[in-house]
Simulated scan of single mutants.
Amino acid sequence: MRRLLLILVLFLPLSALAAFDIKLVSRDDSNARYAIAMIRLALDKADVEYTLNISQGTLTAARQQQDTEDGVIDIMWAATTEDIESRLLPIRIPLYKGLLGHRVFIVHRDKRNLFAGIHRFEQLQGFVFGQGKGWPDTDIMRRNGLKVETGTYEGLFLMADGQRFDAFPRGVNEPWSELQARPELELAVDEHLMFVYRMPFYLFVSPRQPELARILEEGMLMAITDGSFDAQMMSDPMVQMVVERGKLGQRQIFELTNPDLPDATPLDNAALWFDINSLRSPEEADESAE
């Protein structure tokens, strides 16, 4: 009997033997909740045993990357750059299928119509945009000729409320819940403009956990193939809010280049990217095609 059990164990797939005790740090915002749901989906698809040890906290981007590199954290989530991909193990499956590269603006309520008359990119160069210290978006916007004022994540909402800059661009799935969580601030979502650029938002795994990275990628691809990835994404409250409130067909779109997009980004795999026209009504899609 012991010999039979040993033989069975030896022939089990490695994923069936793995039991992962995974350390995460979450600030419990919409991105964190979504990323953790996708981690659970991938690990469930890969059929492994795991425990998620989630600590609540707010780390700077630099500290989060360093802690993940050192193995203090096992998985983090962020927009990709060449630097972070060189230090950590990227799971090159965009968590929002590229939606975070569609950016709408948080503005002060008194500036709801500030961008109503903007139709040329050159007109935007007189405005100041708020972004986070160390965020890839900051460099993208500056290298496209835009003025950027930086701050911490929480501080940027206060800066927008104090009109320290003109607009705080956010992923198209983010701003409504962020404003709902801060009703004391006099902020609103601009309905006129949208920036679009390639900025995949990935899971990144500590280089000390290569097997965990392999399992996560395996599970993510299974979820893409069987449709459960899209089902999870479209059931997310923030994505649903985009469909209901985004008004994407009515926005002036400005495409920005991402000069730091890593060469290994899977741009040619259409299954990994979201078609923005699927969020438009039939009438809006017709208008966009004209």
Score class of each variant (00 low, 15 high):
167 A>I: 12
154 E>N: 07
109 R>C: 05
152 T>S: 05
245 R>A: 14
79 A>G: 14
14 L>K: 07
78 A>E: 01
250 Q>M: 09
222 M>H: 04
131 Q>E: 08
56 Q>N: 13
35 A>L: 09
131 Q>H: 06
79 A>W: 03
60 T>A: 11
163 Q>N: 03
95 L>M: 08
247 K>W: 02
72 V>Q: 06
255 E>A: 13
267 L>R: 13
132 G>H: 02
156 L>V: 07
186 E>A: 15
50 Y>N: 00
287 E>N: 00
59 L>G: 08
46 A>K: 04
72 V>P: 00
287 E>C: 01
92 R>K: 11
111 K>D: 15
200 P>A: 07
17 L>N: 07
239 V>G: 02
175 P>K: 10
42 A>V: 01
6 L>P: 02
174 E>L: 08
153 Y>A: 14
226 D>N: 11
265 T>W: 02
247 K>L: 04
1 M>V: 10
145 G>L: 10
161 D>H: 11
199 M>T: 11
198 R>H: 06
19 A>N: 14
72 V>L: 11
234 M>K: 03
203 L>H: 13
104 V>L: 07
133 K>D: 15
72 V>G: 00
56 Q>H: 14
199 M>R: 04
261 L>K: 09
172 V>D: 05
98 G>W: 03
251 R>F: 06
16 A>L: 13
82 E>S: 15
178 E>H: 00
66 Q>H: 07
275 D>Q: 00
185 L>M: 10
103 R>Q: 11
27 R>C: 14
119 H>V: 15
116 A>M: 06
277 N>T: 15
105 F>P: 11
174 E>Y: 10
86 S>P: 03
279 L>K: 06
42 A>Q: 02
125 Q>T: 14
10 L>C: 15
289 A>L: 09
204 F>Q: 13
152 T>D: 05
103 R>E: 10
105 F>W: 14
50 Y>R: 01
117 G>Q: 05
98 G>H: 02
30 S>P: 02
24 L>K: 01
90 P>G: 08
163 Q>Y: 00
17 L>E: 10
35 A>Q: 07
167 A>E: 12
263 D>T: 15
263 D>Y: 14
270 A>T: 15
286 D>W: 04
6 L>V: 15
26 S>T: 12
140 I>H: 00
250 Q>Y: 03
3 R>I: 10
200 P>K: 05
206 S>M: 05
288 S>M: 08
160 A>M: 03
83 D>M: 10
223 A>Y: 02
95 L>S: 09
222 M>D: 08
66 Q>R: 12
91 I>T: 00
45 K>E: 09
101 G>I: 02
84 I>H: 12
80 T>G: 04
68 T>M: 10
163 Q>G: 04
28 D>K: 06
238 M>G: 10
247 K>E: 11
253 I>H: 11
185 L>V: 11
46 A>G: 08
114 L>D: 02
110 D>C: 01
201 F>H: 12
218 E>F: 09
193 L>S: 06
158 L>T: 12
172 V>H: 06
150 T>Q: 12
142 R>I: 02
86 S>C: 05
20 F>N: 02
73 I>S: 01
33 R>Q: 13
69 E>Y: 15
185 L>P: 03
182 R>K: 12
169 P>N: 13
90 P>S: 03
195 F>T: 08
285 A>L: 09
219 G>W: 03
235 S>C: 03
